[in-house]
Design a protein around this nucleic acid. Structure first.
Lengths: 336, 336
DNA sequence: TTGAAAGCGCTACCAC
DNA sequence: GTGGTAGCGCTTTCAA
């Protein structure tokens, strides 16, 4: 149980004041015109004893923790974990640490987590917001902490947001199925009022309307253990469906289980396209056509936006809303 | 930018001393025989203004943060993310928060992360240790912080450890292939001195020796972008191989890509078994036989052990070494 | 029963 | 150029 060394010990040991040590520690030696000699002596000593300033004390004093709180829907989802990884890397380079967690799209849990982050005094937030969290986000921004929202646009919230072009992407994917000769195309989504899901639906509807094709929309409860049987039942009921467009990757995974359980052949008997790419989709037989989100760009924009706000704590001038495009990856599940 | 309320404000507002408030806050009202009246008054006020003690100040004073640092190999790996989820849940119930990160099996990165956690004053650690981290772990335990090691046994380190029975599990999996008529069974592993990998190899060797079958061991560099071509080349070179046992799930994923690229049929031309279960393996065609680790049990033991150490900071009496069994999930990839 | 005050380690203002 | 010191918000000892 070795005792931690403090700035006091250093000052005493070297026979100087803690003020001087503090200045040197914070790179203000030049500014304060401390002699090179002294600076070197202090630095050497610090290296020698491997002194690390106590971050708690520093944060208590400065009111800054250099920690960014990142909240995604599910950290084990490859899409979100990629984003987390990229954000983390960039943050480190700028002297910020990341602490992250999964909201599981649960409003109450998210509220808890925001409270916890706020108690831990994180300097800024990057959040993939679940439904119904608007007020909490407002409280946060009102308290002066910068917040960047990802993946979902929250109407009425004045804060930086990064989303993808959901309507256009869904329209494109649906068109692709239509162009490949599918006529009875279903859209399987979650029972959510989230705007991005609404937009994906609109994209589907737009394409189907334009082609004057019948629409089949099935909503599955989020996080339902019953999603496989629900999708199976749906496909059984609507026997004429010849293609399915899944609004999220986990819905598609359930859908593939359902389709496989029914013994239907992809893509001959049923075409499949999914939102969000995934290693599984690449390796599945047949490989699944997907709408891939630009994870790198999303992460890049998110952290840049937040760091900008963090640096200059000026008034948050103009709120940014960035809309990114997706890429459409055609594989075998949608071509016949 | 609303101002944070402090214990001072409360004391002043209520015309009492901060000591009293502090006692009530920490549930020591009874012990200190503070009148019920006063307690109620303070509590009501606290609720009313939604006061939260400043955790930084508290930690600075007490030297405890109520944070546990969790370091796994890769948080986006389903095995590790399951464990993380379970540990997190249990910690919360006991008043501890988790911060987690991925080591990517990189010793230098892990060292950095340990340093960072230590600077953040986490109270305890749960670590999946990469190779070469022994000294850092020793420093950690020497500093009096409890450490629980997962997944890998580190020789010479006196701290609680939770592992699975790698040798027995690998032996069992290899036997299964032999029993199903495979004769030229390869073992594909990573070029690591990690004990658990050595044990998996030993299990394979033991089974092959017993059956007097030839051994084919291929080591792939960890994190190699070249793993698919390497496995392809290996299988091309040893044309008589009729089954492969992969030592980790990501090696198996690369292996499946290689096998599929070669146009070999599983399980007729080549049998496949993998360590670590994975949704992809369940959905692959054919479904892949796997050795599944008991994630729940691992998480349960880890957090229990750590919490025990954390509660009673008595001398760490006897070090615990827990060895858990795996379950073997037979699917179509290994039966012909 | 309650309160005063020291001190956790650090930063930053002000003085010399 | 360098040092003294107040104070961030809290816990805890000791005194009343």
């Amino acid at each position: 149980m070795k005792k931690k060394i403090s700035i006091n010990d250093i000052a005493r040991e070297l026979g100087i004041s803690i003020t001087t040590v503090s200045f040197i520690l914070n790179g203000r030696a030049q500014e304060k015109r401390i002699s090179e000699n002294l600076v070197k002596k202090v630095q050497d000593f610090i290296n020698e004893v491997d002194y690390k300033p106590n971050s708690l004390a520093r944060s208590l004093r400065t009111g800054k923790t250099n920690i960014i709180g990142l909240m995604v829907e599910d950290i084990s989802d490859p899409f979100f974990s990629t984003i987390a990884r990229l954000i983390e890397e960039k943050s480190y380079q700028n002297g910020y640490k990341i602490i992250y967690c999964s909201t599981e799209n649960d409003t109450a849990k998210t509220r808890e987590l925001i409270k916890m982050y706020s108690e831990r005094h994180v300097d800024g937030y990057i959040i993939v917001p679940p439904e119904g969290i608007e007020e909490d986000i407002k409280t946060l921004t009102a308290s002066g902490k910068p917040v960047v929202l990802l993946d979902r646009y929250l109407p009425g919230i004045e804060t930086d947001t990064i989303v993808i072009d959901n309507l256009e992407s869904a329209y494109h994917a649906t068109r692709h199925l239509i162009d490949n000769g599918y006529k009875n195309i279903a859209f399987v989504t979650i029972d959510s009022l989230q705007l991005q899901m609404q937009e994906r639906l609109s994209g589907y509807e737009k394409a189907m309307n334009e082609a004057r094709l019948p629409q089949y929309v099935k909503e599955i409860a989020y996080n339902s253990a019953q999603s496989v049987p629900q999708i199976t039942a749906f496909l059984h009921r609507k026997k004429n469906i010849d293609a399915v467009f899944f609004a999220t990757n986990y819905l598609c995974v359930s859908g593939l289980k359902a389709i496989s359980g029914m013994g239907a052949k992809i893509p001959q008997e049923i075409g499949v396209v999914s939102f969000d790419d995934y290693e599984l989709f690449e390796m599945y037989s047949p490989a699944i056509t997907t709408v891939a989100q630009p994870a790198e760009q999303i992460a890049e924009h998110a952290i840049n936006l937040l760091l900008t706000r963090l640096k200059k704590n000026t008034a948050p001038k103009k709120v940014e809303r960035i809309v990114l495009s997706t890429s459409f990856i055609v594989r075998n599940s949608s071509i016949r």
